[in-house]
Amino acid sequence: MTRIDAKFAELKAQGKRAFVAYVMAGDPDYDTSLELVKGLPAAGVDIIELGVPFTDPMADGPTIQRAGQRALEAGMTLQDSLDLATEFRRVDDTTPIVLMGYYNPIYSRGVDRFLIDAATAGIDGLIVVDLPPEEDDELCIPAQKAGLNFIRLATPTTDDKRLPKVLQNTSGFVYYVSITGITGSAEAQADEVGPEVARIKAKTDLPVVVGFGIKTPEAARAIAGVADGTVVGSAIVSKIGGGEPPAKVLDFVKSLADGAHQA
């Protein structure tokens, strides 16, 4: 059982939904990012989604693209992202960390080396948005053999014919993208998301967590009410990008987490 599996079991026993917060590693710099990440669990975050900055983030909207650019300009690398996770693990050995990014930096490092280093750093799961199920032998299956969950995205365009392929070899949870498009581009609607979550849950026993387009505590509560949890990224990252101090960012995160936990 991974930390992700344990967290969902714990939340289920408590009758609570998961709140997942996304932040970009190294945004706006390593030290500030580490301070933020260390503060997330106390702000109510159940799972941390840690973005790895990349030069061509095709699935990300402008807010997260700018976050990645700030991190890259600050010198952030894949190794630095793993180092940040290692530092976090010195103070927290229970909160799951999902590393989210693109395959190129992993491929450049070498899959075998990366998986060893990620496990050593305390990473629990991976979301690699540019590796489809047809490429599972590249990273998904080796990651699961190394004890890491490989989390797949389902979208509004994932029809019933495609869904089984998406769910194959997925573990930890299914990440349902609530809107068609890039991150931060529209607002998620619970009445539209609910039937899609139910459709996915009919095909898998994994928790289904919804992300993209969730910007307020009210939206987090509404979406968590029709899913096993909710993810907020762009709304948090925009606060960081606006220069708000970590304490204020974490206050905002807590309001989002409280909303999700009230569902």
Rank of each mutant, 00 (worst) to 15 (best):
A9T: 11
E10H: 02
V20A: 10
V20K: 01
A21G: 13
V23K: 02
A25M: 06
D31H: 06
S33Y: 02
K38F: 02
V45G: 04
D46V: 05
F54A: 04
P57D: 07
A59V: 12
P62K: 13
I64E: 01
Q69T: 12
A74Y: 05
M76F: 03
T77G: 10
Q79P: 04
S81F: 01
D83T: 13
A85D: 08
V91D: 01
D92M: 06
P96H: 00
V98M: 09
P105C: 05
Y107I: 03
L115H: 00
I116A: 14
V129F: 04
D130H: 07
D137W: 11
L139V: 00
C140P: 05
A143N: 01
P156Q: 12
T157S: 14
D160A: 08
D160Y: 05
Q168C: 07
N169S: 09
N169F: 11
T170H: 03
G184A: 06
E187W: 04
A188Q: 13
Q189C: 15
D191S: 13
V197S: 08
A198R: 14
A198K: 14
K201C: 12
A220N: 14
A220W: 12
R221W: 02
A224D: 08
V226M: 07
V232S: 14
A235K: 03
G243D: 03
P245Q: 02
S255E: 15
A260F: 02
A260G: 09
